[in-house]
Design a protein around this nucleic acid. Sequence first.
DNA 1: GATCTCCATCAGATTTGGTGATATATCACC
DNA 2: GGTGATATATCACCAAATCTGATGGAGATC
Lengths: 288, 288
Amino acid sequence: MPRNLDLTALRSFVTVLETGGVTRAAQQLHLTQSAVSMQLKRLEEALGQPLLDRAGRGVAPTAQGEQLLAYGRRMLTLNDEVWARMTDKAFEGEIRVGVPHDIIYPYIPDILRRFDREYPRVRVQLISSYTLKLKDMLQGGEADLILTTENDTPADAECLTTQELVWVGARGGTAWRNRPLRLAFERNCLFRPWALEALDRAGIGWEMAVDTNSVRTVEATLSADLAVHAMLEKVVPGQLEAINHGGNLPTLPSSRINIYRAHAAVGEPVDAMANMLRHAYRGVAVAA
Amino acid sequence: MPRNLDLTALRSFVTVLETGGVTRAAQQLHLTQSAVSMQLKRLEEALGQPLLDRAGRGVAPTAQGEQLLAYGRRMLTLNDEVWARMTDKAFEGEIRVGVPHDIIYPYIPDILRRFDREYPRVRVQLISSYTLKLKDMLQGGEADLILTTENDTPADAECLTTQELVWVGARGGTAWRNRPLRLAFERNCLFRPWALEALDRAGIGWEMAVDTNSVRTVEATLSADLAVHAMLEKVVPGQLEAINHGGNLPTLPSSRINIYRAHAAVGEPVDAMANMLRHAYRGVAVAA
DNA sequence: GATCTCCATCAGATTTGGTGATATATCACC
DNA sequence: GGTGATATATCACCAAATCTGATGGAGATC
């Protein structure tokens, strides 16, 4: 008494019912008619009951055959799926994802981990840069999928979420009370001009506490409570916090997180990555 | 390049990961260690990539192995399930279902059809009788599952639905205007005393148009617009209709449809049948 | 460093499962 | 009711796959 079905025979069985004949099925499967016939016989013997009703024209499944057909289809679907995932060209290669460095945390690391589980044969290259640079790279074919932080959503993009820009500083810090307000921004940070403009409009004096291109420097300055910074509300790292300034600092504009996909970027892995990003930031997956 | 996975090898693969060793897996599977080892090798060859990481203590799946593990488990689950359905003793035998004949339509035929599809090796014996007789049969072990129409729900029963009892007659019929009201009921019909009592209380004179134990006779009498009858609102057959009497006939009490299960009736098929009945009458399936 | 455990690999035995040929059955048409 | 066409079952044979039991080697354990 065997315990495991033979997927080859099962495929023959399903094909016989789908093509309506042993001979046709055999052709489609590139086997001889007798081989398929014997597979059917083996199946029936193994399960100890008739599966096909050969009465007259064509073949019809018996009641038990119906059962096996349903299960068989599901099993073959799984088989084909895993087979595709493990060997299909479409599931290997590289996918280049660009993310502004200020929104890498907290979602991206987890997404990369999960993606690698799902598509182990796809190498993910994470590009961390500025929104403008990322858009250039997408144009230049150097990235397949990018996230951006912008104040609107162009037609070729999709908005994942709109988030408030907030003032942040060290946990429990007081740097935000100082005047002129001491700021820490990277030179190319997209939010820097937004913050400055908001302060100017509110008539609050300010000065740059650091002049750097390093995120680390900014972080260190903020952690030491020497300056304040602006970032999206949902991505404030643990050692910092949104400043509860009670109106002493101006409200900052909101920003959108958009996703762009290169025209050339097609295939299930890219779809899946896009969906994971959507799901993380928007909380909603989009059907493929 | 094979196209179908070998479920035997797949089971070995899964077992190796579950037992943490080729040798242990082989014992559990009643195979030699070398056989299992070769199966693993064949799997890796077929899929063209390493599935196991034999580094040091124990075995760990590679990233691709994780994939295969997940799919493999699902496929084996399906395999074992269909195998059980097709060969397990628990999925063959007889199940005796008792249903009062006035609620057989419209649901029961469809349920029986669907049940037979799901459990082709289980013979269903449909017992059509009166509620009291059915309860006797259940007590006497002559039925596994019965539906009843009663005006309450005893502790050992489960109420599926509460339905209004309504007056019915021929489509477009006028028999309900006659006085004395002419009635057609089988002798043992449970609803007969309910109807008579309601008429008496309303001071409406009545007489029995037929004296029979045959449903057919009652139906024929009703179809000919010679008498009226009372039945549950949801089970009125097509050739009859609920009478729109506008208060000229008394309101009838409501009735419950209950389900009872014999203590000895256990197993998945009985559960499934009970669930199908619940679903049909109550519109809700109950988790197994 | 000896021992133990576990796994990969090999040669040979066995079984499985496929091909091609043949027998049987069913249908369409006369 | 017979005939040809088409479809399926079965058989003998053969090739390939797969199991067993033996062997050797890599780590872990003492």
